[in-house]
Design a protein around this nucleic acid. Structure first.
Length: 472
RNA sequence: GGUCCCAUCGUCUAGAGGCCUAGGACGGAGCCCUCUCAAGGCUUAAACACGGGUUCGAAUCCCGUUGGGACCGCCA
């Protein structure tokens, strides 16, 4: 039988970390079994669902490359189907019309809680006769007994039916509710494995009752543990960015997030780094843990750094350009940019950092960090700078090796260690004390710019006050 | 409050009764390398929540306690 999984978000916000992991596990499970992964938008709550949210979720899925095989299906377009099912229950006597108003129910619930009683619907409309013209909701009749949930992750979980109230399946405005829709959809879409957050575990007995009442075969259930924030409460904005797309904006690589999410709750021995192919091959629900996990941004950052370090410079250059654009620098992914990326890729944890570090390559004018200038742009280096300027200028081939030869010669002549020369030059060329290797920086900057910046530094040394911290 | 779930280093986890003096990874500390910063290499601190059983033997099985989480909507 073909394995069919689904991700079924409700479009009431962006795709968040938790949802993305649920989607990922569904995706991996389906791919592993060469089955189908279906996307379904649960927009039965017309008031809260928005098109922007739907689009945001689609964008997030696409960015993470969680490609779906069918859908997106929209529940809002299937209302007739749900309605039919609800009325069928009515005919079969498995559901009844409830004439209680939302206000009445709300009031009774409040009183029950006040008295310390469980806020459960008392079933008072179960045996009422039809009242013509009065609005009604349709409630499913929960029969006595025990409902057993067989969960791949949690094992067998038994629920007493008398703990469960008669649930509304069709609202008084004629729209269907969540539990009805999921069951009808999962059944008619022939979903074989329902993989979702364990916040749905308590809904599962209700849904099983609906399946059984319809005579639909049960899917397999797998309830994933929640993702928590650092204080072990449910992950929310308080814990930092929870939107998947926020990570794109912060300069994360999609596969870093995928890899991180995969290992949050699932493991494969001691392996930490996985390609998507490896994930697909190795993923199984048996290796999903039972306990909830804390979202750890540091580890995600480490993975991002890892993939930046390992990434192809041509691809990274393309990904970097929008971040340079955002800083006001026009850059195309040409040879110069890939050279820049090569030097920066193991010095950056995110694309934002990379763009920041690349800034001195693009700036018209260097500005010196005050401490760096004070420490390194001093009288005693002036002579070295002048020497460097003339020798660089007469260099026929402006290559890494040729530049290094010049430095070595000066080191020998002046009996200086490379560090004594490189740091001042670094400040002169980049404005700061941190950059890729100095020969590489000079080569990429080019003869003209390098010399111009060295000359500027010489002027600065001669007259720091006048040429000092001018702002652009 | 009721129901349900969960419990190994700070965090993610390995662990399917003897392989555990509990392994890996992130993060931390230290050292090495070094033109800066990184990267890399090496070393190191750090956990089986507690109490009872079962067993020759328990991180692993059972019970309880404690702690955490989720759900109790005409939300999904």
């Amino acid at each position: 039988m073909e394995i069919r999984t689904r991700f079924a978000p409700s479009p009431t916000g962006y795709l968040h970390i938790g949802g993305a992991r649920t989607a990922l596990f569904n995706y991996l499970f389906a791919r592993h079994h060469k089955g189908k992964f279906i996307l379904r938008i649960e927009d039965t709550d017309v008031a809260r669902s928005t098109e922007e949210s739907t689009q945001a979720i689609l964008d997030g899925m696409q960015w993470l490359a969680l490609n779906w095989d069918e859908g997106p299906y929209f529940q809002s377009k299937r209302f007739e189907l749900y309605k039919e099912h609800a009325y069928k229950f009515l005919e079969m006597g498995k559901a009844y019309k409830c004439y209680c108003t939302a206000e009445e129910l709300e009031q009774r619930r409040g009183e029950a809680i006040k008295q310390g009683k469980p806020p459960k619907y008392d079933g008072r409309c179960r045996n009422k006769k039809d009242e013509q013209g009065k609005p009604f909701a349709i409630r499913f009749k929960v029969l006595p007994g025990t409902t057993l949930v067989k969960d791949i992750i949690k094992g067998k979980v038994a629920f007493e039916n008398d703990e469960i109230e008669d649930l509304i399946i069709l609202r008084s405005d004629g729209t269907p509710t969540y539990n009805l829709c999921v069951v009808v959809d999962d059944a008619t879409m022939e979903i074989t494995h329902v993989i979702r957050g364990d916040d749905h575990l308590n809904n599962t007995p209700k849904q099983i009752m609906l399946y059984e009442a319809f005579g639909y075969p049960l899917p397999q259930f797998a309830h994933l543990p929640m993702i928590l924030g650092s204080d072990k409460t449910r992950l929310s904005k308080r814990h930092g960015a929870t939107s998947v797309m926020a990570y794109k904006e912060m300069g994360y690589l999609p596969h870093a997030l995928v890899n991180y999410l995969a290992r949050l709750g699932w493991s494969c021995g001691d392996q930490e780094i996985f390609t998507i192919e490896e994930l697909t091959e190795k993923f199984s629900l048996e290796n999903v843990g039972k306990s909830s996990g804390v979202f750890n941004p540091e580890k995600l950052l480490w993975l991002n750094q890892h993939y930046l370090k390992e990434g192809k410079i041509e691809e990274l250059a393309i990904l970097l350009t929008p971040f340079l654009e955002a800083k006001g620098y026009h850059a195309s992914a040409d040879k110069r940019l890939t050279d820049i990326v090569k030097g920066l890729q193991e010095r950056s944890k995110t694309l934002i950092e990379m763009a920041d570090s690349a800034e001195f390559y693009f700036k018209e004018d260097v500005q010196y960090e005050e401490n760096a200038a004070n420490k390194f742009l001093t009288k005693d280096i002036q002579e070295i700078f002048e020497l460097l300027i003339s020798r660089l200028d007469s260099l026929p081939e402006f290559t890494h090796n040729a530049i290094e030869t010049i430095f070595t010669a000066i080191m020998n002549e002046k009996d200086l260690k490379l560090g004594k020369i490189a740091q001042p030059v670094r400040v002169a060329l980049t404005g700061g004390t941190v950059s890729p290797g100095i020969f590489e920086v000079i080569e990429i900057l080019g003869k003209e710019t390098s010399i111009a910046r060295l000359k500027k530094a010489v002027e600065f040394i001669a007259n720091p006050a006048a040429k000092g911290q001018k702002t652009e």
